[in-house]
Structure formats: C-alpha cells, structure tokens
Nucleic acid binder design. Structure first.
Lengths: 97, 97
DNA sequence: GTGAATTTTACCTAATAAGATAAATTATGA
DNA sequence: TCATAATTTATCTTATTAGGTAAAATTCAC
C-alpha cells in the first residue's frame, strides 16, 4: 500500500473516532447503530482497514456526521472553487497515445 | 443493498464521471493515471460497484478533485457547524443496555 | 492493585472489490 | 451506412472487506 493511501486511512480513522467519542458512544454501541461489527469499526478507526464507500456512509449516518468531513476539509475550511480546466492539457499520460 | 447505499454510490459515480469528462479524459486514460482498470472505473462511475476508500482517493488525486466533493456538499455549499452534542442522549440504542 | 469495561487482535467464513482479458454494446464521425 | 472509438458487460483469479466469535490487551473506576 502506498503512503498516500495510508495517510488517507489514518486521517479518516482519526476523524471517525473523534466523532464517535464526541457523541459519547463506544464501539459496541456504534456497532449496534450501524450494523457493522465492533472489531470492524476498530480496524477502520485505527486505519488498518480500507473501508468501502457504503461502509463509511453507514457510519457517517449513524453519527449524523457529514461524510465529506470525514475525508477532507477540517471543520470551517471550505473548498475553493477552481477555474475551469485548460483545454486538453495538464495531464501526463506518458507516451501512451 | 439498501436504498441509502445505492443512492450514495450513484451520486458519487455521477460526480466522478462529470469530473472526468470536464477534464477531457476517457476511461482508458484515467485508468492509466490511476492504475485502476477501465472496467473497474466504469462500474464505479455507473454506481454498480462499492469502491474502497483508497480507490476513491486514487481517482480524486488523478482528477485533482477534492475527495470530499465527490460525496456531499455540491460546489459552493458549506457544512454548517453543529452545536455541541447533548450529553448522552439522542441515540436510539433500543433496549440494548 | 483488582475487577469491569472497552478496545484490539486473531482466527474463521462468505461476499465482493479489483485486475486482466475479451466480447458485446453503444456512441461518434466520415 | 460503415468504421472507429468508447463504454459496458462477462468471466476468471486474487486480494481484501466484513461478520462472528473468542481471546488478549488496554483503559478506567473503585
């Protein structure tokens, strides 16, 4: 697994744990709410598992936490609208056509 | 699979496709950029596959697209800060302790 | 320090993501 | 229409998620 992947998983895991603790829930209780087992939740929160999108969705729903905030954009930070993309260029596709 | 899951997958898929097309890339080219096969990308974009978090991360990176924007918060919409959570209550854990 | 609660880890099984490849389908253009 | 490109679907293999359970480890309260 690459470094970027690992960072993504640990970051999302940290935010999940913080959100759960902020709501005063333990893993057992969150497991009840989500239908995801406590061991699985533990692995996700500790960044040891690469969860599926719907798995994250179930957890976010149970915690009443915006899914997007699990992944990027620390609270309060807003994504800046980018300018439209320059036509065609900007991607290195190598010599592959 | 539940209704909410399906909605999450189709929504994320749509946004992925829009982002890819906005950059003038076809599936083959995006496959080259991400290391994810074109058939897999097709399944994800059409909401027929439940991708892993790191898979979404690879695609978002390749498209230079904020991962969070794939999932919620249509461009321009900002998440409203919630008040701190009321102590203990608000969750229906049934009669399970 | 002890004991209880919580979390982590370690098995197992089943379901499924993802790669490769190829075939089929669907645009797109000449 | 026909040819080409692009996307979708199908099949197979491999890797990994996720549930269940139990045991180990950690944390917390007393």
């Amino acid at each position: 697994m690459e470094d970027q992947d690992r960072h993504l998983l640990t970051e999302a895991g940290h935010r999940l744990r913080q959100a759960r603790l902020a709501r005063g829930l333990n893993l057992h209780q969150l497991a009840r709410l989500t239908g995801i087992s406590a061991p699985a939740l533990s692995l996700i929160e500790t960044g040891k598992r690469d969860p599926r999108l719907t798995t994250l969705g179930k957890i976010a729903t149970a915690l009443r936490f915006p899914l997007a905030d699990l992944l990027e954009n620390p609270p309060g930070v807003t994504t800046v609208k980018q300018a439209p993309y320059p036509e065609g260029d900007g991607y290195d596709l190598g010599d592959y056509e």
